[in-house]
Amino acid sequence: MNLFKTSFLLLTAFFFIACGDNTETPITADVSSISIDQTNPTIRSTDAFINLTASAQYTDGTSADATTKVNWTNSNYNVVSMLGGAVEAVANGGESNVSISYADFQDTQALTVHKLTSFFISSADINTTGVFPLEAKGNFDNNETNITLVKNIVWTANNGATISIADNIASITIYVGDTNITATVFKETNTSSPIAPITKTYTVN
């Protein structure tokens, strides 16, 4: 009797298990492509950096952020440096192709670095001792003007003044006397029209 009962239970289980359904639509949409979200991105040669982002597109029409998952490369490390999707210019102007890849997927965008054509020290006049911010602004080959220079600028000073940089902001500690402050951008020696350093003198009595 026990055998009969057990067999009946198992056959019943057999019946129900054998009559199950089957899912016909994948529960996870497949990847159809990946792309750099910015089309033909640009950066000024003295910008801090720009963050490019990447997305994965799926067969169901959705997409998701893949910025930190894809591999980032560029074709000209003499023009820009990259860390993930963060891009920073290392030359005064130029072009590079920025690419992302993952498995067999890839995408490429042309990135342009806008050239600084001229610049000037825009810091306010200093006539007392103390710590003061330094600032320079410039004009670029895409007709943008009076843009604050953040990177690729080197400040020097004499008369014992000290210069410190924190968070891309330069500050000078100035003392009594005449202090010459010089701003130099892109010490390019292989270009026909390098941008000359600019010097400004502050006098503190």
């Binding site: 198992l10 289980a13 298990i17 990847v31 893949a66 998952k69 993952y102 997927f105």
Partner: peptide
């Protein structure tokens, strides 16, 4: 032999680039 098996399955993550999605399932076998 007549039997019933229960299995708890853990699948390798499905790679969607953005994330790897792991699935688990209960399997009943007669």
């Amino acid at each position: 032999e007549v039997g019933y098996d229960y299995k708890y399955l853990t699948y390798e993550g499905v790679d969607t680039i953005a994330e790897k999605i792991s699935y688990e399932s209960n399997v009943n076998v007669a």
